[in-house]
Structures are given as structure tokens and as C-alpha cells.
Nucleic acid binder design. Structure first.
Lengths: 122, 122
DNA sequence: AGGATCGGTTATTTCAAAGGAACCGAGGAA
DNA sequence: TTCCTCGGTTCCTTTGAAATAACCGATCCT
């Protein structure tokens, strides 16, 4: 069964996808924005553990990739709002597939790890 | 619409999945093994750019997670063979979904990047 | 004895992503 | 005038994954 792309090629789209989606905070940001547009401060408060710096970097990167959109809004002190771009919705299909896989199999992986850590000396 | 898990929790299975599958070489190794068991040296030659050390680490890690299995075979100079574990096949469902997404949308992302890099000064 | 092969190990270095903490300018509000 | 908030920026350190390269013991071939 031939593959449309060679998965081993450095330009492999799947590889690029994983690099983008696999980035530490991408999924969290997209998760928040999937509930609607949000401001910088809302994002920062919604995502426990993220710092301004990393949030800024992640948002710029996602914007650059066309997954989200940034709009300045004319409010009291400055104001910026981030929203899903059309492209930003698209990964949720595969991602939900991935989520189902994860919910099903992560316990298996943890069991395997536990077995390995105890030492398979049985 | 409630989610079964809170995606923002540190223990989120999807997050763990992305960490595992997103690791630099995981997808390549699983891709090779999906065509059948392979020896260390075959893997190393099949995956351009990987080194013995990184291959060893990746294989150990995948084995620990129960995605692949290692067997020593009694051949001329040593001999080890790696094969998919049952758990190793399971991510291909979501991954193929991801691949389809990637093949469809990576060009869009690249276009977005190109636009961003030129400068959206339009 | 001198290679070569297999399946690694060990030690050192590089690199990008991330963390931490301090700081900033504009524009109110007190 | 001083303070606060918003949406960041700047600088420095830490971390972890990966790159690089040399080496190893066992076994077989010549």
C-alpha cells in the first residue's frame, strides 16, 4: 500500500503538523479559543502556568501559521483580541480522533511504563 | 458541550499523546515498523539522519511505552529485532486522520507564513 | 592476527523551547 | 502626581532533546 507522501522525508506534512500541534502550548491556546475569541489577559488566566512571554511567542507563532487571528480593539488601555482563524478549526477533526485514542490508550501506556519501571525481571 | 477531560489539566491524555507522538523520531520509527519487524541496523539505514544513540534512546522509550517490542534473535553477531506491539498499531487511526489534515492544510500554513514573512503591510 | 559486522554505550556539545523576573509606554482613575 | 491596568518586551537562566563522534565486546571470516 503506497503512501501519498514519504513519511520519512524531511518535508513530510505530518511531521510538520506534529511539530506545530505538538508545541507545548498550542493545544491549550486552541482549546481556549475554540470557546470563542479571548483577550490576552483572559488567555493568560485560562491557561495555568503560562507566562506572558511564552504566551506572546505562542500567539505570534500561531498567527504566523494562520491558525489564529489577532485584532486590536479600541478600548480603555490598549486591547487585543485573539480568535480562531478558519484554519484554526481544521485540526480539531484529527485532534478529536487523537483525543479518543489518548483517552483509550494512555492508561495502557502508563501500565506499560509501570511494568517497565518495576523491571520486567519476572 | 462538555469535554470528557479538561484539556488544560497537566494530566490530560491528549497532551501526553502529543508529547509521545510528537517526539522527533517516533513517527519515523513507527512508520518503518508498520511495514513489518526490522533490525536495529535496518532501522538506522531506513531513517535518514538518525544516529545510533538517538535510535537507541527512541527505541527504548517506545518500548517502555509499550508501543513496540524488542526481541533478541540468535544470529551470527548478536541480533535484535523490533516489531510493533499491539499498542503500536493503535495510533495509526488518528495519525492517518492527522496525515490527511496535514496534506490538505500544510500548504495553507506555508502560504500564511509566506504572507506573514513578506510583511502584512498591504 | 587483523579485519569487519551487529548492536549498541559513553562523553561531550549544541540548540531551541521554555521558565523567571524585571521593566515599559499609553491612557485613564484617584 | 502617583498609581493602576493592558499587552506586551527584554534579558538571563534552565532544561531536555538531539547532534557528534569515539569507542566496545562478541563473533565470524580470511
Amino acid at each position: 500500500m503506497a503512501r501519498a507522501y514519504n513519511v520519512l522525508a524531511p518535508t513530510c506534512p505530518s511531521s510538520r503538523l506534529l511539530h506545530r500541534i505538538g508545541a507545548r502550548w498550542t493545544i491549550f491556546i486552541l482549546a481556549v479559543l475554540s470557546d470563542g475569541p479571548a483577550r490576552f489577559s483572559v488567555l493568560r488566566e485560562s491557561i495555568p502556568g503560562i507566562t506572558s512571554k511564552v504566551l506572546t511567542e505562542s500567539l505570534r507563532s500561531l498567527e504566523r501559521d494562520g491558525l489564529i487571528e489577532r485584532a486590536e480593539i479600541d478600548t480603555v488601555p490598549d486591547g487585543a483580541e485573539y480568535a480562531m482563524a478558519p484554519l484554526g478549526w481544521s485540526p480539531w477533526g484529527p485532534l478529536n480522533g487523537g483525543r479518543e485514542w489518548a483517552e483509550t490508550h494512555v492508561p495502557d501506556i502508563e501500565a506499560a511504563q509501570a511494568r517497565a519501571d518495576v523491571g520486567d525481571v519476572a
